[in-house]
Design a protein around this nucleic acid. Structure first.
Length: 556
RNA sequence: GUCCCAGUAGCUCAGCAGGAUAGAGCAACAGCCUUCUAAGCUGUGGGUCGCAGGUUCGAAUCCUGCCUGGGACGCCA
């Protein structure tokens, strides 16, 4: 358990004991005690609203209850400096600063593992994200989902969950047939023939390239062959090409998967018929108009859904049900799906499927990534895979840089839409907050390097009690919060809290830097202490940046 | 028409399992480099938290209705 959590636990127990002793509530009546960090420093280091919560139970005025609690409180516990009652009945705790003394040694000892906790207790979680159809380039919107999913995984991992990252490859179904037809048209065009693209074809430049590549490698030899044979080959060729590119782009974006799961394998392993059987046995399926239907309305969906079309083929839903069954059969406590906003309507039917298959619906979770609006020259650009005019992730990485793109996407909450200004991003100006954070890290590196050249040893022992300046105390408290912040981000599935944290930490560092001088050869004791503090801040900046997979440069 | 997300400072957004005087960046204005990197710091101004009810000791946060913007409502994926 980390230092801060321990202090909080001690305080909570002391408060609970005081409430019982003052006979304000019995042990059974006692609500769980909430300790929060007040926004205003004048309200102490910790505050509790327990007196207000007890008002009804104890039938007394909150302030009177607060009086009773503090009168019965064992103030020798947990380094309490003083206790105050404020406002409507808050009890504010001011701690002695020595409660911060353990923070730096902990960080210097734990190094890269500082921030990791066992909050998740080894629970198995699977996150499926990106899962873009292999029919075109990854674009801006996918990048947001990729960044979100990846950082969520990192955060879950740090918080003690066992995470598996998975990409679901849609390598079966209509869109792949369309890919083959699109490649086919581009192939003939590359041969100089005037062939029209299919109506639902993919118009991206990548498909044009595939057509050209095919001509390069095979000449016109495929033109004479049987169409179905040709399309089968083009399908595999296109699929391989597109998947390869997606994997490459994601790798450059620092996103890696533990598992690439093929939709086709569900057909090959009879997983679909298996899942259908389960639904049938549960009496959730019926025949109508020559199609097979799933009665999702039993589970709150708007209307029932088709599983098997009149032509005998499955809808997208059917293999997806089999896929989710397969995921749950793999023993995950929770499966998190990261989907684009345009798929949110799909949630009720998937929830229905989970329940109809006999699994607890709580195991199924969806995080919706809202749309990215792209602006250029003050104008909103439409994104469309069809027209191929979307800004590709690749282009974005080249022009803006991976650090900036990742940081930007993970700064915002996933459930609100986001404006992405290409001009601003391209300009690489100082407006970009990622530089601000990286600069804090680089600054520390410079100081530590100079300290070394002046004969100060970074790992030397130091006197923690010397760190009493306001900015130092602020930094120490912030450093102490890190494990809790990470655990909180994991639990609430809000990776942007980490970005927010690292920004705040950078702010405190810059502020400290301007207020105090670290290297002071006339005061070696203080210098030693501050060097240790800088080393600790550097470590936490690195650990936090690593969670969002942004680099921590040593100089800028 | 039904469902989902959003509406908070001029702009972009945090805050939302109820808590004290609603925050940050950018933009605006005023200061700070003979001193460890000024990609920085310090300060000022800027708000009917979309609107109206309700629950509560207490609501930006929870509930209901409405308004606005976006998205989804396929035997497409």
């Amino acid at each position: 358990m980390n230092v801060l959590a321990q202090t909080e636990e001690t305080l909570k127990q002391a408060i609970a004991a005081a409430v019982i002793q003052a006979e304000l509530a019995t042990e059974e009546e006692l609500p769980s005690i909430v300790l929060e960090k007040p926004k205003d420093k004048a309200h102490g280091d910790f505050a509790t609203n327990i007196a207000m919560q007890l008002a009804r139970i104890a039938k007394k005025a909150p302030r009177q209850i607060a009086e009773d609690i503090t009168a019965n409180l064992d103030k020798t516990k947990g380094s309490i400096e003083k206790v105050e009652i404020a406002g409507p009945g808050f009890i504010n705790f001011f701690m002695k600063n020595d409660f911060l003394g353990e923070i730096i040694p902990t960080i210097l000892n734990d190094q890269a593992s500082y921030g990791r906790t066992n909050a998740g207790q080894g629970e198995k979680v699977q996150v499926e994200f990106v899962s873009v159809n292999p029919t075109g380039d990854l674009h801006l919107g996918h990048a947001r989902g990729a960044a979100f999913g990846d950082v969520l995984c990192n955060v879950l991992d740090a918080a003690g969950y066992l995470v598996e990252r998975e990409y679901y490859i849609n390598d079966a179904g209509n869109q792949i047939d369309n890919l083959a037809l699109s490649v086919d048209a581009r192939y003939f065009q590359a041969l100089g023939k005037d062939v029209a693209m299919p109506e639902d074809g993919y118009h991206g430049e990548d498909i044009i390239k595939i057509g050209e590549k095919l001509v390069e490698e095979h000449g016109d030899s495929w033109a004479e062959k049987d169409q179905s044979e040709r399309l089968a080959f083009f399908k595999e060729y296109g699929l391989k090409y597109e998947l390869g590119k997606i994997e490459e782009d994601l790798a450059e974006f620092r996103v890696h998967f533990d598992n690439w799961f093929s939709e086709r394998s569900l057909y090959q392993d009879d997983k679909i018929t298996e899942a259908l059987e389960v639904l049938k046995n549960g009496d959730h399926v019926y025949e109508k108009d020559g199609a097979t239907w799933f009665r999702t309305t039993d589970f709150g969906d708007d209307k029932d859904r088709v599983l098997k079309k009149q032509d005998g083929s499955y809808t997208y839903l059917t293999p997806d049900i089999a896929y989710h069954k397969n995921k749950l059969d793999r023993g995950f406590n929770k499966i998190i799906n990261v989907w684009g906003a345009d798929h949110h309507g799909y949630i009720p039917r998937m929830r229905a499927a989970i329940q109809a298959l006999g699994y607890p619906v709580e195991k199924f979770d969806v995080e919706i990534i809202q749309m990215v609006n792209l602006f250029e020259n003050g104008e909103k650009l439409r994104m469309s895979k069809r027209t191929g005019k979307a800004v590709a992730l690749r282009e974005l990485m080249e022009e803006v840089g991976v650090d900036a793109v990742r940081y930007y996407f993970v700064t915002r909450s996933n459930d609100s839409q986001l404006d992405f200004d290409m001009d601003l991003a391209r300009s690489q100006s100082n407006d970009n907050p990622v530089f601000y954070v990286q600069y804090a890290h680089a600054r520390i590196c410079t100081m530590l390097k100079q300290a070394e050249s002046k004969g100060f040893e970074v790992e030397a022992s130091y006197d923690a009690s010397l760190l009493t300046a306001e900015k130092e105390v602020d930094l120490l408290k912030k450093l102490g919060e890190f494990p809790k912040t990470v655990a909180d981000a994991a639990e609430k599935q809000t990776p942007h809290k980490v970005t927010q944290y690292v920004y705040d930490l950078a702010t405190l560092l810059h502020s400290f830097y301007n207020a105090e001088k670290v290297l002071d050869e006339s005061n070696k004791e203080l210098t030693h202490a501050r060097i240790a503090l800088m080393e600790a801040v550097k470590t936490v900046l690195q650990n936090a940046l690593k969670l969002i997979a942004v680099t921590a440069p040593e100089k800028m």
